[in-house]
Amino acid sequence: MKNFSFAVVLFFLLLSGSKVFSQNDLMNLFNEKKPVTEYTIATFKTTRIVLGQSVENPAPGNLIFVIQHHFGYLNQGAYEFFGLDQASIRLGFEYGITPWLSIGVGRASFEKTYDGSVKVKIFRQSKGKTNMPITFSYFGNVGINTLKISDKTLNYYFTNRLTFVNQLLIARKFNRTVSLQLTPTLVHRNLVKKRIDENNVWSLGAGGRFKLTNHTSLNLEYYYLLPGQTANDYRNSFSVSFDIETGGHVFQLYVSNSQGILGQHFITGTIGNWLKGDILFGFNLTRTFVVKKPKGFNK
């Protein structure tokens, strides 16, 4: 009996000790005990939905050169070559300082406006350890109109030239195809043309991205002017863009009823009517330069 129990013990001991690991056992060694926070990437393809800002920032250490260009209204006929004789342009640079902070400068041809901007990510959409359903950012800019003053007798201050855009960018990437964004906006103009015009213009922007293929997407953007003098005199801005991503570049080809490119111009100053054919064609080209290589990229 004693011998028998000894044999049983030995048998089980050998069984447990015969270290035959399956490939699954090896794979299971990699299982993470602690969940990690996984941040959502590519809510939008670039830093703009069409004309307005998206929640995307330039990556840290990356400098983006942006050429924003659009033509005149298509319905002007052959004499204006369907708007192609007219051009409005903005050249800009954007730089990512950290994953949540970026700055930008630029100059738009409309009213010869220089601009400086800042975009701050407050929350990032994520899952895993930290679950956050939305990305929440602030965008602010200041525009400086540098047109010459025609009437030298006027008492004209520098501050008269300033306009400001303040936006909250609230976006969610629902799945790989659909991302949506709400953009409550306040545009402040230090000086307006007429006494009746508003210095503060409130607007609610909405936009979305719909991926068509892995490399192309359709973007929609609408800015609704809240009731007021501006809403009475101007129209809401509506733009549709087709984005093509080619390796390291993004091209956005769009149609819009807005002549302005900067927020202070297109949100508050759109006169075009889509239904009457006041539609213009434009494009955004971005070229990214790596100023600082990311950590972990070395041999």
């Binding site: 990437i41 490399h215 390796g247 390291g248 790596v290 972990g296």
Partner: peptide
């Protein structure tokens, strides 16, 4: 990790 963040995004998103 890619040198160009945009390329990294495209790698993950599209390729």
């Amino acid at each position: 990790i890619f040198e160009k963040a945009l390329m990294q995004e495209h790698f993950n998103e599209d390729y």
